[in-house]
Each structure stands twice: as structure tokens, then as C-alpha cells.
Simulated scan of single mutants.
Amino acid sequence: MDPKQMVHMNQGQEETSYARNSSIQNAAQNRMKPLIEAAIVDVCSNTSTLSCGKVVIMDLGCSSGPNAVALVSITLEATHSHFLQLQQPPPEVCVLLNDLPYNDFNVVVKSLVPLRKMNEPVVVTGVVPGSFYERLFPGGSLHLICSSNILNWLSKAPRDLMMNQIPAYDIDEHVRRERLTVVAGAYARQFRKDFTLFLELRAKELVPKGRMVVSLAGRRSDELINESSHVWGTVAQILAIMASEYMGLPLKS
């Protein structure tokens, strides 16, 4: 099955849904607030960028639930505040939310309703299903792109691991340590390729002097993994089983 159809967060608003279990993601979005506010000031202060009197804002990988509109809500508040200080009417704003096609867009659309009821600025909303590793928008059409913790999702598993039937995670600790350099290198190369493609695509879609605010969890290359990292062992095993089922690879016991 195409991974764009297979991968998505738990839908709905039940106890195990993403909407009810995404407080950590929300905290990461809140830390982006000052960066988004600064980006909005830059965009709105450039008369050539706003020559048409409209701002188009995109959130890539919005998922669903309360977090779906968190970043764009920050941009709307920042836009309103900026023009209120200037005592000028704000521009019309188009807010677009993107995620993979099987995301729970029914919940997302409901989350957009309050934004459309704002008096200032005038807000038009929409959803754009698709992978952010593909072109999603016309060239030079976006003023601000936001995304929180999406680029840890690669476009695909590294080809050399799949060809050699090497799982990303092996339950056997000895085998896992032996393959660590090979597996880490394969994923690093895939990330470099995907991240380069991501930047090239977004560069085409942004207006001249547009802005992009992206958050991505990581660590310094010279920073050693500490003992606390082992608490993720169980999570790694679960992800390994999921990956093996999708890739059709045997999981070492």
C-alpha cells in the first residue's frame, strides 16, 4: 500500500486519538510563537511582498485535533497585532492546512470554523491533502510556511536497507550495535536527500522574501546519547514491528 495512504495519526476524538494525546506536540508549537511573530512582522513590513494586500499562510503536517490550527492561530494573532499597532487595516489572510490524504480532515475542517468568524483580518481557509515531499502550491504563492516536527517523517525507508533486508531496529542488542553505523548512515543520507528536496520545493512556492518557520527535534552531532535515551527502547521496538510489517521484512528475535 502507498505509505501516503497508510500513515496517519489516530483519527477521531476518542481516548486513544491523536487529538487527545498530543500535549507534547502542542508544547513544541508554543515554543515557535516568537519565531512566527517575528516572521509575520518581516513579511508584513515588506511593501513589495504585500503589494496585493493579501497574505497566504500554510501549515505543513497539521495533523488533526486542537493542534491543527495552533500555528496558524499564532500567525493570525500576530498579523492583527502588527497592523493594530500601525493603526492600519490588516490584509486579507488565506490559511491553508496540509497533511497526508488519510489525515482526519473532518476534524480539521471543524477546527477551521472559528477562524473564519474573525472580523479582522478577513480569513479564508482551506485544506491541501498531499505529501510535503511533492509540489503542493503554485510558484510564488505562499508568504509564510510553518511546520512543527514533521521532517522526522522521511519520504521512504532507505533503499539500501530495504534491498539488503536490514531492519531499522533489531531486538537483538548485539546485532543492533553491530549494525548501528550502517543503519544510522543510511537514514542520515535519506534525511539529507529529503530535507534538500523539501527546501527546494518550498523555495519555489514562497513569494520573494517570504518566510518559513520549521521546528525539528535533534541533537548536536558531537553530543553523546545519554542513559535517559534508553526509555525509548519500547517505542523503538513498536516502531520496528510497524516498519517490518509495512516493508515485509522478518524481525530478528
Rank of each mutant, 00 (worst) to 15 (best):
R189W: 02
A168I: 04
F195K: 03
R192D: 15
K156L: 10
L197Y: 00
A184G: 08
K193E: 05
F195N: 06
F191H: 10
L180R: 14
Q165A: 09
Q190W: 06
M163P: 02
A188T: 08
R159Y: 03
D170E: 14
F191R: 08
I171G: 05
R177K: 14
Y187C: 08
L199V: 14
D172R: 03
R176G: 05
Y187I: 03
R177Q: 14
R177P: 00
L180T: 06
H174D: 14
T181F: 05
Q190Y: 06
S155M: 08
V175C: 08
E173F: 03
T181P: 05
A184L: 13
R192K: 13
D194V: 02
S155I: 03
F195H: 09
I171Y: 10
D172F: 01
P158D: 04
Q190G: 07
F198C: 08
V183A: 11
D194R: 04
R179Q: 15
R159K: 09
V182T: 12
L199Q: 13
F195I: 06
D172G: 01
H174I: 15
Y169C: 07
G185S: 06
S155F: 05
A157D: 01
D160K: 09
M163T: 12
D160N: 13
K193S: 09
D194N: 13
D160C: 12
L180Y: 09
P158H: 03
A186M: 07
L161W: 01
S155R: 06
Q165C: 06
Q165G: 02
M162N: 02
F198V: 02
A188V: 00
R159A: 05
L161T: 02
E173K: 10
A168S: 14
P167W: 01
Y169K: 03
L199T: 10
R176W: 00
G185T: 04
E178M: 11
Q190K: 12
R176H: 10
A168L: 09
Q165K: 09
L199R: 11
K193N: 07
I166E: 08
R176D: 07
L197K: 14
L161K: 01
A184T: 12
F195A: 12
R159W: 02
D172C: 07
R159Q: 08
E173A: 10
L180G: 11
I171R: 13
K193T: 05
T196M: 04
Q165L: 02
R179Y: 11
L161N: 04
D160A: 05
E173W: 00
V175I: 10
K193L: 05
R177S: 15
A188H: 06
D194W: 00
H174E: 15
M163H: 11
E173L: 08
A157G: 01
R179F: 09
R179T: 11
A157E: 04
A186P: 08
V183I: 15
T196R: 13
D170M: 14
G185Y: 03
V183Y: 04
S155E: 08
H174A: 15
F191M: 09
K156N: 14
P158Y: 02
N164H: 04
V182F: 08
L199N: 13
K156M: 14
H174Y: 12
R177I: 11
I166V: 14
R179D: 12
